[in-house]
Design a protein around this nucleic acid. Structure first.
Lengths: 181, 181
DNA sequence: ATATAATATAGGATGTGTCCTATATTATGG
DNA sequence: CCATAATATAGGACACATCCTATATTATAT
């Protein structure tokens, strides 16, 4: 998927180890892309096999050697090709909505609990992203503008989820104490 | 994941074949859960192995026999347990935001193209969901209320995406004709 | 004083889902 | 008249990702 290109994108900025990449991703794209450590290493060696990335081994005594990955021109080409390529359809999969869909089997109180938990989670996420967003200075480049935009996207969807859940919660009153699902 | 429970949820309403389930899902939860045909059949036979579902074979001459699946009491219990269980953390993965994040490598026009395509897609989705939403009568049960709520969720997020993309698009003007990424 | 986090890589097992294929007939659309 | 959609199931191959494990030392936190 896009992990491959995410790695290439980060390696454009500077050569990094798998470990560095994991941290860099967690700190920047973590809110819209979670990457497993094992997956990063596997994808990274795949990039090396494809000739898009080279490795410099830096010997270390106490820890495993640092394998510093550097992007090749072919890697940059692959990244640019991907950026301009048509958007692949994303499989949608929302376990929470699946629960909502069959929630009629639950007691109203249990549904309220589900929804308030959802609101709490989304509120926390929005707070976190907003805090990071506040720390950003006014964008002086297109790149910065776009990176901040990804934060705004998370905030917008988080807020949409909160608003939606509150509306559903309010509409639930009509079925309080009712057992006719 | 939740596919297992989605199948159980649908089988509560009436016994169905794998084929029926695929159609039922596409028509109702399709906007927040895409299910592959092969995956449905495999998951379904898994449910049979677990003893949560039984099968009646209806002989047919011209086509493969219909294997009608019926939920067992154990299946209903499993469904209810899942509905009340804590929410598993969902892995986030948004290829479009990954592209946005590294979009600084593209020309401003190319980014505009990405964003307008995104707006078009989201607009289409919102139209489709809104049309379905309009066809719904006023909910007379908790179940109906919640099912309609899943539609509203899709509409809300679609609209949030449209609003966000338009804002980003407007902010892009400042970098028109600039090459300093 | 002791535990755990940080540094750094990588393999095996497992799960979940997609894609493609096979099979066979009838109905519908252009 | 011909193609393809609908009906109905299911297996093989493969991709992508997660979880767990192993290894080894230092720094930090309780």
């Amino acid at each position: 998927m896009s992990l491959k290109f995410a790695l290439l994108g980060f390696l454009v900025e500077q050569p990094m180890t798998g470990y560095d990449l994991r941290k860099a991703m967690e700190a920047s794209v973590g809110h819209f892309w979670t990457a497993d450590q094992a997956q990063i290493y596997r994808t990274l060696s795949g990039l090396v096999d494809e000739g898009l990335v080279t490795v410099d081994v830096v010997e270390q005594e106490t820890r495993p050697n640092r394998r510093v990955h550097r992007i090749c021109p072919a890697g940059e080409d692959a990244l640019d090709a991907w950026l301009a390529s048509p958007l692949e359809p994303v499989p949608v999969r929302e376990p929470f909505l699946m629960r909502t869909f069959f929630g009629g089997r639950l007691k109203v109180e249990a549904i309220e609990h589900l929804l308030t938990a959802r609101i709490d989670e989304a509120t926390q996420l929005v707070s976190l992203l907003s805090a990071i967003r506040q720390q950003q200075s006014t964008p002086t480049s297109l790149s910065m503008h776009l990176r901040i935009a990804t934060l705004d996207n998370g905030i917008a969807h988080g807020q949409a989820e909160i608003d939606w859940a509150k509306t559903v919660l309010n509409g639930l009153g009509a079925w309080h104490g009712t057992d006719l699902t």
